[in-house]
Design a protein around this nucleic acid. Structure first.
Lengths: 128, 128
DNA sequence: TTGATATTGATAATCATTCTCATTTGTGCT
DNA sequence: AGCACAAATGAGAATGATTATCAATATCAA
């Protein structure tokens, strides 16, 4: 969920605001370009700093392209996963309670603690 | 599963062979260093080429570190997922038929085709 | 052996991300 | 308002994994 605007400083408002306007996962570089087009003077370093801080506190979701580039997205709901169209980038947030249970069971069976999981789905959407 | 050695050329044998000796996910840079320590003259570019080709045909598994570095691993079984210790790197291959079913159902419900999924678990193993 | 073709290793080039640091901005205090 | 000091910022350099380039080398059929 989006952090209350009142709790953000000016840079965070600009960066997260720009991200909010994107419907799909967007790279830090792209966010930087978008801000520049809007006439903002925000620096690239600030964009990276802001996005990483936001990701660290789960305010935005992150995933990686095949070549390792980090993509960010401001999501609506709490914990969820994504179904992403590899052609047009359309992204659907999906629930996965069965996956959560499975992950916890597997972890417990092997004596693992503090387990987190990465679950993302990719494919071609109906239109593509 | 490992491609038959007879079908590999010399470079592939060296690179995949070095990877085979590693118990955990290993970077291309590390594989290169390992080969050098063994006195091999294999070039860095060849290591990258070989690992990527192998990954493309699912002969090795790939995952990414938090900073985007690609890590490779030669796995035993067919399609599976991993439970990785974030401290020592110990990796366990796990099955997830329930996850596969969930992924297919979700994809179908949203009209997606040719769906693939990324599912990895991270945590602290019993020893760490 | 010979010429066509594919592979290789050294090295340079790319490019996202991180680091550095001088400057600006924010904040509490008087 | 004026001031001291901490935090945030932006410009540009530095880093480091990955790619691209290309001449040298290995492969192999005829």
């Amino acid at each position: 969920m989006t952090k209350d605007l009142a709790l953000m400083n000016k840079s965070e408002i600009k960066v997260i605001g720009a991200l909010k306007r994107q419907a799909r996962f967007t790279s830090a570089q792209s966010v930087y370009q978008l801000l520049r087009k809007d006439g903002e003077s925000t620096g690239l370093a600030t964009v990276y700093r802001t996005l990483q801080k936001a990701a660290a506190k789960n305010a935005v979701d992150v995933l990686r392209t095949d070549d390792g580039e980090a993509l960010y997205r401001l999501c609506e709901t709490g914990h969820h996963h994504h179904l992403v169209c590899t052609s047009c980038g359309k992204t659907i947030e999906v629930e996965g309670s069965s996956v959560e249970r499975w992950a916890n069971t597997v972890a417990k069976n092997h004596g693992f603690r503090k387990v987190t999981h990465v679950v993302e789905l990719f494919g071609l959407c109906a239109k593509c």
